[in-house]
């Protein structure tokens, strides 16, 4: 097994990866396939992988570089979920990813009985862009966590960075590190980093600013938007895909016109479509090539949803999201 750690460049998460292989091997014959992560083009990058043969199981891995929320693959075209309703698939999820599964189940896009969920309690994922900004790296050969430090080895030697400074913003405000739904857990549950009500610190900071300051902030941020729609494509709950109203021209909500008004409009629509649905997995922000903090808008709407409706998305599969129901008894709205 020393080979494995050498190849992955990891020493700390070898046990979890090994355990994942065992668990996958045990159920693979009953499944149509499994979606998980494998080593990417260098040690700093993982990439999603679909496995349906036993000889490929060794490709699966777990490490804090397994940043992707894989749940979108189950519902987006072509869906990884087979049409045959008797068949199941396996999926690897972190705490945040599991909430997407719950939300998709709440909205009846998924049946829990179609899934075999490998839950992975997570202590945070590494934001490689943050790392690169601190240490410009070239030809990364290994990445590992040693206690409070992230150690990265590239062509110029070994660099170290405080662990906390390498984490993604979404992970620093994570209250649900342990998968809420799972069939098996790959490792023991971990302590949440913060409590639920502390998760909206950045939103509260924004609220302190004047309207003009906020407009100036968002104008500057959104001005960079290139309307590549990566945020939308990465969002597991953005299920309209080709029918998304930012691309269809009837009804004509958006045009090809250049300028910030169309960019604003797109992000407002995206955020409002996720109001009371977004599980704050942070994928939209992670994939944004222009590094716009787009999850922040959804965080604000979620904070409002919590305050007014006492509701949090992706927690209880039996609940109906409040904006997806009609209740004439709701007076406070």
């Amino acid at each position: 097994m020393s080979l494995l750690s050498e190849r992955l460049g990891w020493i700390v998460f070898e046990a979890e990866t090994k355990r994942l292989h065992e668990l996958v091997k045990a159920v693979l014959p009953e499944l149509d396939g499994i979606v998980g992560w494998e080593q990417g083009f260098d040690a700093l990058h993982a990439t999603p992988v679909f496995v349906n043969r036993e000889e490929d199981v060794h490709r699966l891995m777990w490490s804090p570089l397994c940043v992707h929320n894989l749940s979108g693959y189950l519902v987006k075209t072509p869906p990884f979920l087979p049409r045959d309703e008797g068949r199941k698939v396996g999926i690897c999820v972190k705490g945040c990813d599991s909430r997407s599964l719950v939300a998709l189940e709440q909205e009846k896009f998924l049946g829990r009985d179609r899934l075999h969920i490998f839950g992975i309690p997570c202590e945070g994922t590494v934001d490689w862009r943050r790392v690169m900004k601190k240490i410009p790296l070239r030809g990364v050969s290994s990445v590992r966590r040693e206690g409070p430090e992230l150690k990265v080895e590239d062509s110029r030697g070994v660099h170290s960075l405080p662990w906390e400074e390498s984490l993604a913003r979404r992970c620093l405000r994570c209250a649900h590190p342990n998968p809420l739904v799972h069939d098996v857990l790959v490792r023991d549950p971990v302590e949440p980093r913060i409590k639920k009500d502390e998760a909206y610190g950045l939103v509260e900071e924004m609220d302190q600013k004047s309207l003009e300051e906020r407009l100036a902030f968002w104008s500057a941020e959104l001005d960079r938007c290139i309307r590549c729609y990566a945020c939308r494509n990465a969002c597991p709950l953005c299920v309209c895909q080709d029918r998304c109203i930012v691309e269809t021209r009837d009804p004509k909500w958006l045009t090809q016109k250049m300028g910030i008004s169309e960019k604003f409009m797109f992000h407002m629509i995206h955020s409002l479509h996720l109001a009371g649905r977004c599980t704050e997995c942070g994928e939209c922000e992670r994939v944004c090539p222009m590094e716009i903090p787009v999850t922040l808008m959804k965080e604000k709407l979620n904070q409002i949803t919590r305050e007014i409706l006492g509701y949090e998305a992706g927690i209880d599969s039996q609940l109906v999201p409040p904006l997806l129901t009609f209740n004439p008894g709701e007076h406070e709205l």
Partner: peptide, 23 residues
């Protein structure tokens, strides 16, 4: 018009108060 407001891809339109008319 509740359906129209809820429909994410605006596939459901309220005749005589369509999105295009309001826009």
């Amino acid at each position: 018009g509740l359906c129209n407001a809820t429909c994410p891809c605006k596939a459901i339109q309220l005749l005589h108060a369509t999105d295009n008319q309001i826009l």
